Structures are given as structure tokens and as C-alpha cells.
Amino acid sequence: MRDKQTLMKIDLHSHTHYSDGSLSPEELVLRAHNHQLDVLAITDHDSTAGLEEAQACQAGQKRSLQLIPGVEISTRWHGFDIHVLGLNIDPAHPVLTQRLAEQSERRDERAQKIGEKLAKMGFESVYEDAVRLAGVGQVTRAHFARALINAGIVSDFDAAFRRYLGKGKRAHVTPQWPEIPEAIDWIHAAGGDAVLAHPARYDLSAKWLRRLIVYFKDCGGDGLEVLHPGLSPDRRRQMASYAREYDLKASAGSDFHHPSRWTELGKNLSFAEDLVPIWQNWSIN
């Protein structure tokens, strides 16, 4: 399996416009082909809505590309938003579909409350603009940030979160996400592997990050995303060492949302050969 990994270009974390990505499933698949990917996981936030469209698009392509059905589930842990990737899932499994439907309702309720808070500040049109920007997908804080930028209220995403949308700010609404063990159970029920997404991105000290990883492992988690954008060489080595120390399989993904010079599908995602890949027991063609 490691021989395949060295020969194949694999990206196990990407988003479409069904969550907070800007590309349609078809556009994402075509971009994956343009960048010569062999394996791509589509992992929208709390949604599997784009998977069927992606498969339909790939069915019409001459070049091979294996699509791995996935999802990125939002959870809460000690007040932090922690994301768990479900990879190689059965997206039609009734447990998963029911729980994701409940997650969607929570997202809608949260978006409405954020919109109400912004309206009380005098920004009445921001919610409608965020809904418009979300299109077929779920309204996320990223859509609110874009709407705030479009309205000239803030200059960039950082300002939107720093002034209004971030934790403790005037338009922040604490999400009602499930606990980590619940998300892992949903993923396992659907036959998938549970991976702790972008562990180095959480605002955690080294001590607390270790606590999170240990807890994730104890709850039945399968893998750790050891490579994702923005990691320094030292942080890459640190994430790999955590995977070894806690006997977690390794995953890697671009966390692609939009075409940009900072992130790209399949870019710099090869990890050390002594790590056990999350796809070890999958049927990789």
C-alpha cells in the first residue's frame, strides 16, 4: 500500500459549494483532473449533498479518478469547535443521513441567530446576502464574512471574525454541535474511518492538543490529518510524531475551498513512509 501511496496523488480533504467551498462538485472534479489527482475525498461540512453530482461528473471522464465519499462533522470539545472527517463512508446510511439532517437544522438556526444579531447592529441586509452567497449550500460564518465585506462593513475575513463573528464577539452564536464520540459513532456506523481534521489549526497549547488527540483516540478515532496547508516543517514533523506515538493512521488533505495561490488540490501531501496511511484497507484502484 505504501508503494501505491508513493506513486499516486491523493487528497482526502476538499469542499464544494454545498458547504463553504466556491466550486460545484463538477468543477472540483475537473480541477482534480487538471492537477493530476488519482484519489480525491469530498468532505463538505456536515453534508454529503455534492457526492452524487461528483460521481456523475467522473462517470463521463476518460481519465481515472477515484472519489472517496466523505464528510467533515463539526463537534464541540471543552468549548472548542473540533472537526472530524468521515472518510470512505456510505453516504446513504440511515444513521448518518439522519444525524447530518439534524446538523443542517442546527446550522440553519445558528445562521438565523447570527443574522438577527447583525440586524440589531443595523446590518439588516447581511443575512439575505449570506443566504444568496451560500446558494445551494448551507449558510456558514464564511458566507457572513463575505457578506460583511461586500457591504463595506469590514475589509477582509480576519476583520469580520475579529470584530463580529469570532468567539465572544457581538454576532457570535455558540454552536450546538455534538460531542466527538457521537460523530465517531456516526462515521463508524456508515462504515467509514474517523480522522481528526487539521489538528495544528486549533488554538490549543501543546498540552491541550495532546489531550485532544488522546481523547480522540480513546473515543475510537482512527486517524490524524498529519498534513494540511499552513504547516511549517517543524509542525509537519510534530503531527507525524503524534500519529506514531498514539498509533493513529495518517491522513493528508489540502482542505481546498477556493482556487488560490495558498492552497491547491494535492499539493505537498506526501508523508513519511513509516506512517500507516488511513487508506491502508481501502480498495484503492
Rank of each mutant, 00 (worst) to 15 (best):
W208L: 15
Q238H: 10
L85E: 10
F256R: 14
V139F: 00
N285F: 01
V95E: 02
R76S: 12
V39G: 04
H35V: 09
A41Y: 07
H198G: 10
R76N: 11
D185M: 11
L227M: 04
P259S: 11
H35D: 11
I213S: 01
E225G: 04
I153G: 05
G166C: 07
A32T: 10
D185P: 06
P229F: 00
G115M: 07
E245C: 13
H93L: 00
N281E: 11
G21E: 11
K113S: 14
H17L: 02
P259D: 11
R99E: 00
Q98H: 10
M239Y: 03
N34K: 15
K62H: 11
D234L: 09
I42V: 13
I89A: 12
D255P: 10
D274S: 03
R132L: 10
N88I: 05
D247K: 06
N268T: 07
E52W: 02
A250M: 06
D255C: 02
D129P: 00
E128V: 09
I42H: 11
H13E: 12
E264S: 11
Q36H: 14
R76Y: 01
E26D: 15
W177Q: 13
E116K: 15
V139T: 14
G166N: 12
D218P: 05
A243I: 08
L165G: 12
A111W: 00
A56S: 14
L118N: 04
D274I: 01
W208I: 12
H83A: 10
R244A: 03
R107V: 09
V71C: 04
V226T: 09
S64H: 15
I149H: 05
L87M: 06
L118I: 05
I10W: 02
A189N: 13
S14M: 03
G266T: 05
A206N: 10
L209T: 11
L212S: 07
L67T: 12
E105L: 15
D11G: 05
W282L: 05
Q238P: 02
E179M: 04
G168Q: 14
K62M: 10
M1C: 03
D193H: 09
Q176S: 14
A240F: 01
R132K: 01
K113F: 06
L196Y: 13
K9M: 01
G115A: 12
L196P: 14
I284Q: 12
I89G: 10
F80N: 09
K62N: 13
M1R: 03
L51W: 06
G137A: 08
D158Y: 10
G70E: 08
A240E: 14
K62C: 07
E124C: 07
V226D: 12
L231F: 03
L40I: 08
A56W: 07
F123S: 02
I284S: 13
G230Y: 09
L212Q: 10
Q280P: 03
G230R: 13
K113H: 15
K120Q: 15
I68P: 01
G253W: 08
H172M: 06
S22Y: 04
G223W: 00
D11L: 00
E72Q: 07
D11T: 06
Y18N: 11
A119T: 11
A189E: 14
I149N: 05
V136L: 04
R110W: 02
Q280F: 04
F216A: 05
R244L: 07
L231S: 07
